[in-house]
Computed example of a mutant assay.
Amino acid sequence: MKTSTTQDVFRILLGSMMTLAGIGHLTFQRDEFQVQVPRWLPTDSEFIDFVVIASGVTEILLGLALIFLIKYKVKIGLFLGIFFILIFPGNISQFTNGVDAFGLDTDLKRLIRLFFQPVLILWALWSTGAITYLKNLKTSSYEFL
């Protein structure tokens, strides 16, 4: 799937941000990510730490894949969009439980952050050409009818 230079720049930027966030999961922001794990999941510290580590490794892999696996960028964009949906409950949990992390120390800041998740999903899909791919898939499926 051909993408524009602007899309490529934003794809690489998102990949870099994902890689840095993943590193943060494993190191300097680990405590903050732990408080975002939804409270409806098991609450023992080993499980919470596993969730943070697993999501961090996933973010690093997706970030690096966005940057370097250009041939698979559409699939990676789709996977990243799904990943952003899957981690959204952590953001909701942070809001509903009033948990301070990442400078989000008021209910208003935590609420505003919730509206950025759809932006990240669209960013992943747009910058990789996945939106165009999905539109073409939809169009081609109607041709068979």
Rank of each mutant, 00 (worst) to 15 (best):
F95A: 13
G90W: 06
E32C: 09
I53A: 14
T43C: 09
R113N: 14
L69H: 10
F115R: 05
F144T: 12
A124Y: 04
L104T: 06
S127F: 08
N91I: 12
F28I: 10
R39E: 14
L122T: 11
F28L: 11
E32P: 09
Q34T: 12
L86S: 07
G81Y: 03
L108Y: 11
L125M: 13
A21V: 03
E143L: 15
I121H: 04
R39H: 12
F68V: 00
D31Y: 08
G81T: 02
T6D: 07
P38I: 05
I131L: 14
G81W: 01
G77N: 02
T132N: 15
I82M: 03
D31W: 07
Y142N: 15
I48A: 12
P89E: 04
V9C: 09
G98P: 00
K75V: 09
P89Q: 04
F79A: 15
F33K: 05
N91Y: 07
W126N: 01
L69S: 10
Q117F: 01
W126P: 02
G81H: 02
K2E: 15
K109C: 06
F116H: 12
I53Q: 10
I121T: 02
I85W: 08
L78P: 03
M18A: 00
V99T: 14
G90K: 06
P38M: 08
M17Y: 10
T3E: 04
Q117C: 02
P38A: 12
S140P: 06
F102P: 03
E59V: 06
W123Y: 02
F68N: 00
I67D: 00
T96V: 15
T139M: 12
Q29V: 08
F28H: 14
K138V: 09
G129T: 05
I76N: 02
W40N: 13
F68W: 02
T3P: 00
T96Y: 11
I67C: 00
L20C: 03
K73R: 15
K75A: 11
E46M: 12
F115Y: 10
H25L: 03
I70P: 03
V99Q: 14
F33L: 10
L111H: 08
N136V: 04
F144P: 04
L111C: 09
K71I: 05
L64I: 00
I92G: 04
V74A: 10
T19N: 00
F116W: 15
F50M: 15
L114Y: 06
G22R: 00
G90E: 05
I121G: 04
G129W: 09
V99C: 08
K138E: 12
L69E: 09
K71F: 08
G103Q: 06
Q29I: 08
A65H: 06
L69R: 13
D105H: 13
